[in-house]
């Protein structure tokens, strides 16, 4: 197995049209080892014969329910299971996830979302990011290079370092770059609290951060204020890792 697309997927759903649609979708997205079943009996046969790498399972099946079926499969292997169900009650979702399902997707779903969730589960299970887990990214912001590994900012003028709080704030903003991050999330990252009582402290830290990363701190280009809500980091580019 070289990529997640080499994974064997077993799709179990009693609705033939939906089954076909999902299979088509998976094929379009590069999966080619796809098996299907439309009831519990067929599912058992396929499961023991094919030994799938992941199972996409409907909760309501004509000769049983997906929850029991998952329990049965799990007693034989730790294969990841994603529920695909029309039942959207909290109890059903909690029951499915409580049983140890890797995800619970309710119908109707966006095809893209389904694919992304399958990717996520397969990546997590078969291709965990064990390589260079400790290494943090390096990214450029205009003429600056920011290295999160040693909390340094390098520019033509020289090298500057980030304080612990500046690092925490910039890291949170970087994780959500091009998106707005609320003041509360930033305070949570830096001080473990909500914005209340930290408004001025946050402003001071953001100003210092701007002084370090903005060419014109009073007219910011990269670290934008979204009034009343939070901040947004924009325009940065992550450098590919050399190894």
């Amino acid at each position: 197995m070289n990529t997640i697309h080499d994974c064997k997927l077993l799709i179990i759903d009693d609705e033939p049209t939906l089954l076909k649609m999902v299979i088509d979708l998976l094929k379009q997205n590069g999966f080619y080892k796809i098996f299907s079943a439309s009831n519990c009996k067929e599912a058992r046969t396929q499961f023991y014969a094919t030994k799938p790498d992941a199972i996409l399972l409907d909760v309501s099946l004509p000769d049983g329910d997906g929850f029991s079926l998952m329990r049965e499969f799990r007693s034989h292997s730790i294969v990841p299971v994603l529920f695909l169900s029309a039942r959207d009650e909290d109890e059903d979702r909690l029951l499915g996830l409580g049983l140890g399902a890797d995800d619970y997707i309710t119908k109707p779903f966006l095809p893209r979302e389904l694919i992304l969730r399958i990717h996520a589960v397969l990546n997590r299970t078969y291709f965990p990011l064990i390589l260079n887990q400790e290494e943090k990214p390096v990214f450029t912001l205009g003429a600056l290079t920011i290295d999160f590994n040693n909390a340094t900012i390098t520019s033509e003028k020289g090298c500057d370092t980030l304080t612990a709080k500046e690092f925490a704030l910039l890291w949170k903003l970087y994780e959500n770059k091009e998106k707005i991050v609320s003041g509360d999330s930033l305070c949570q990252a830096a001080w473990g609290d909500t914005l209340y009582g930290y408004e001025n402290t946050l402003m001071v830290h953001i100003r210092r951060l701007r002084e370090k990363i903005e060419p014109e701190p009073s007219n910011p280009r990269f670290l934008l204020t979204i009034r009343g809500i939070g901040y947004k980091l924009t325009g940065g580019e992550t450098l590919e890792r050399s190894n």
């Binding site: 609705e15 049209t17 939906l18 649609m21 999902v22 088509d24 979708l25 029309a86 959207d88 309710t106 119908k107 109707p108 779903f109 966006l110 095809p111």
Partner: peptide
């Protein structure tokens, strides 16, 4: 009952 056909249409 509407969810499954809707999934297919959306898909």
């Amino acid at each position: 009952d509407i969810r499954t056909p809707l999934s297919i249409a959306m898909g």
